[in-house]
Nucleic acid binder design. Structure first.
Lengths: 125, 125
DNA sequence: CCTTGACTTAGAGTGTACTCTAAGAGTTAT
DNA sequence: ATAACTCTTAGAGTACACTCTAAGTCAAGG
């Protein structure tokens, strides 16, 4: 007997809004969620796990369209494992590049900050 | 005698489009650029330096509105050095948080990738 | 019975940051 | 002088990812 969650509970647990959960389903990021007899969505722990991974992809800057491509592959089962692996490895590189870029920009920021610190010192004298 | 650049040259050197350069000026990220007699913009090296810094702020996720606030402070001169320093230090923290977040998401990605690698191995046997 | 509240749908609206269009002016090359 | 090029402006349009609205269904509580 597996736990199930209403959309409200799913929203609370994932940190996405109910609107966004329906939107993600509508655009195909989430496969159609099971329904109760009254038509209400019932999210399984598996759904929530999938959504967590989607959040990870989004938070690392993957566009929704690419996430959709990944989701489509996932729905096709085992024969797409290679493609999915490729997609994730490529994305991994993109994330590494992002981090490296941020590092470099951080260095610029640090230089500016120490310049301002000196400047502030100077002006206060 | 200082070098000056047309908007086309400025676009080329900064990597921003001419459209974006005019837009940045329009919204106040860049103070009104000097004009030639024919009304064409003439960017100085100083302008280009400022634009480079704007790019750094943008690339690290600062919203245009906040960049505008920073630009406004900069225009007010020395008495805003403290405020600018504060703004940049706060932004620096935001960038550090971003990097940390990316690191954590990268770890999730790595786990998924190694899972897929195993899975691929298994299926190919 | 009536209200409250959670849910449903299709589709419209929003915010952000560009990005482009249209119409026109001035410079240079043939 | 005709074409090609670069620039100008105001304002419209676009892409993306949500985010919200309106109208309606259904079940539980008072």
């Amino acid at each position: 007997m597996e736990a199930e969650y209403s959309i409200q509970e799913a929203a609370h647990q994932t940190g996405l809004s109910e609107h966004t959960l329906r939107y993600y389903e509508r655009v195909g990021l989430i496969e159609p969620v099971e329904r109760a007899e009254n038509g209400h969505r019932r999210y399984t722990p598996g759904d929530l796990g999938w959504i967590e991974f989607l959040k990870c992809l989004r938070a690392t800057g993957m566009p929704v369209a690419q996430m959709k491509a990944y989701a489509d592959l996932a729905r096709q089962g085992d024969q797409t494992v290679g493609s999915r692996l490729g997609l994730l490895e490529e994305h991994r590189c993109a994330v590494l590049r992002q981090i490296e870029q941020l590092r470099q920009h951080l260095a610029v920021l640090d230089r500016k900050i120490s310049y301002y610190s000196n400047e502030k010192e100077r002006l206060e004298r």
